[in-house]
Design a protein around this nucleic acid. Structure first.
Lengths: 146, 146
DNA sequence: CTTGAAACTTAGACCCATTCCAATTTGGTG
DNA sequence: CACCAAATTGGAATGGGTCTAAGTTTCAAG
């Protein structure tokens, strides 16, 4: 089912400075095979089919390692559980609450530059987080101003 | 100390379809007087000086009412507690973890239009959330790609 | 190989922001 | 001024996530 070049997965872990463990390999492999920005819990459920003994704490640990090594991005939308995304391109997310779906939105480099230009020079290296949010019931109108 | 036109505060609540209660007035007034994007807890502490009997649940309730009536925006940064912002202009936030400060970043209308243009037409009414994040320790490099 | 230290994994306790609940209290309307 | 839907309250409950301590694995050095 999930396969995607077993070899390179452990290689990528090592290249990124992580020890390759079965748990990390499987978590990363499942994440790569998902286009749905799964949560830790969702991954836990799927990964257990292959590594029945894995614990939720380990899934969190693996994700933490993957995120801090730069192989995976952590996506926080509103107050929901964190989601994880192996797409390393700088990109935005669209969260449609009606369907619960989270999808990637490509960000042209020119636009990224314009966004960075909004910041004082000393802070141009900030991480950009851009989310589009479609609430279940259309958003409140911006009422009469001050 | 905190004053900002007492009259209009309760008027604004009513204009936005909310019942004016002492708790809502005080929460909103403190929020208007803060430039720091306080959390519910921070507001609770400050508001208690004026309404010693108020409960944290009420602060949450008031904020919920203010947010869903459109008088206040809820700001979620990474996994921290929600922050609240009475600035209704569409704007971005800069979160500097070194100082813990959150500041507003103005978003030119033209740029907002460009961002919206990234979405399929049926979804152009999405709420835009744009945050710039300065991690305490500079961000992980984007490692060798797929 | 063996060994030892560091890195990992695990279960379960714990944390903390937020929500829920059931019992009052209140605002404003008829 | 009586009524009642809406608001407030304290405390319990929830849920995502983190911490801890103990056991396991990895890897480099010998």
């Amino acid at each position: 089912m999930v396969s995607i070049d077993q070899e390179s997965i452990s290689a990528r872990l090592v290249r990124s400075g992580l020890r390759s463990t079965p748990q990390r390999e499987v978590v990363y492999r499942f994440l790569l095979s998902e286009r749905t920005h799964p949560t830790a819990d969702e991954l836990f459920t799927r990964v257990k089919t292959e590594l029945p003994g894995i614990s939720l704490a380990t899934v969190y640990n693996c994700l933490e390692a993957l995120v801090s090594s730069g192989l995976v991005k952590q996506v926080n939308l509103e107050r929901g559980p964190s989601r994880y995304c192996p797409n390393l391109h700088e990109h935005a997310h669209l969260h449609d609450e009606a369907t619960g779906q989270v999808s990637d939105v490509n960000l042209p480099a020119a636009l990224i530059d314009q966004l960075r230009a909004l910041l004082p020079e000393s802070q141009r290296d900030a991480v950009i987080e851009l989310n589009f949010h479609l609430p279940r019931h259309s958003p409140a109108q911006t009422a009469a101003g001050a």
